[in-house]
């Protein structure tokens, strides 16, 4: 029961085929309330199809899913009232003003005081001064901000963001990323589709890596640890032949040596590193630097994709 209260998105064997092509196959997923969940996959992997299914826009071929306790297919309209969607392209009405774009959606969502809500969001997103300009005259970054404001205008419980920084220059992308950071609340769940792994690493509490099917789910740090373990890198002043064999500490999982650098796999580096350093000093090693080897989400992603392609 407690689990059900926390989980806002649940999918079971969710599958969508287009003819003979499976855009999403057998997706089992659980996204909790208030988390920023990254959905990572290459282009054409089924991200948009998944968002469309989860936001009640298209039906799955098989399987089922619930969003805030509502079943897709059966409660689509109620789902659409409770979710906000930022599509891959902003999709603004270029001949309408900034304020008219937002007001139109506020009215469609039957927001209680659409004018006030529109003003509030335009001020929040620093677009109030441009309210009477045509949406077509805004910069790409501004358009994206307006599109995000549109997705939020009805205060949705779940926000789907499909490639929010795709096609933006670094400055605009940073602006949008900062904006997403500010959208984190305990009440709002953000489902972020991206192939920008750095973005996912920075923003997401948990990520799912997939390509047509789910490959891995978890906290980015946990995932990296699960797949690669935790490793400590030690730079020595000079190479010591046979040092790796001489260490002999019970907690060490693996030692690799490249010239004067040791890469040591540990399970609890916080506790084990001091012991390790003492042991190396005892063995006469002159330590220059000790640091943790950080694997990027990109490494993890590429390895998983490669593994998946090899399996297929």
């Amino acid at each position: 029961m407690k689990q059900e209260q926390c989980s806002v998105i649940q999918t079971e064997h969710l599958t969508r085929n287009f003819g003979a092509i499976a855009a999403m196959n057998d997706l089992d997923l659980e996204v909790n309330k208030g988390e920023v969940f990254g959905f990572l996959g290459p282009n054409g992997a089924g991200k948009t199809t998944t968002v469309r299914m989860l936001s009640g826009l298209i039906a799955p071929t098989s399987g089922k899913a619930t969003i805030v306790g509502l079943e897709i297919g059966r409660d689509n309209r109620a789902i659409r009232e409770r979710v906000g969607v930022l599509t891959e392209t902003p999709g603004l009405y270029k001949r309408l003003s900034v304020v008219d774009n937002l007001l139109f959606f506020a009215k469609l969502y039957a927001v209680r005081d659409p004018e006030r809500q529109t003003e509030q969001y335009l001020r929040l997103f620093e677009l109030w001064n441009r309210r009477d300009d045509l949406a077509g005259t805004l910069s790409k970054g501004m358009r994206q901000k307006l599109a995000i404001a549109r997705a939020l205008i009805h205060e949705p419980q779940v926000l789907f963001l499909d490639e929010p920084t795709a096609g933006l220059d670094p400055e605009a992308a940073l602006m949008v990323r900062k904006l997403i950071e500010t959208l984190r609340t305990k009440e709002r769940t953000i489902f972020l589709c991206t192939h920008n792994l750095d973005e996912a690493d920075r923003l997401c509490d948990r990520v799912a890596l997939f390509k047509g099917r789910l490959l891995a789910v978890g906290d980015p740090r946990e995932l990296k640890e699960r797949l690669y373990g935790r490793r400590t890198v030690i730079h020595l002043a000079e190479a010591h032949a046979g040092l790796e064999d001489a260490i002999k500490l019970p907690f060490i999982k693996k030692v690799e040596r490249m010239d004067n650098t040791l890469v040591i796999s540990l399970s609890n580096p916080e506790k084990e590193n001091p012991l390790l350093v003492n042991r190396l000093v005892e063995l006469g090693a002159e330590i220059q630097f000790v640091k943790e080897l950080r694997v990027s989400l990109e490494d993890l992603y590429l390895d998983l994709m490669e593994e998946n392609d090899a399996t297929d």
């Binding site: 309209r77 969607v85 392209t89 902003p90 999709g91 009405y93 270029k94 997705a151």
Partner: peptide, 18 residues
């Protein structure tokens, strides 16, 4: 066609409109 050109149909369809 305007909705298609502006890619505005999907955000519109994502609202509770039937």
């Amino acid at each position: 066609i305007g909705e298609k050109e502006q890619a505005s149909m999907e955000p519109l369809l994502a609202t509770p409109i039937s």
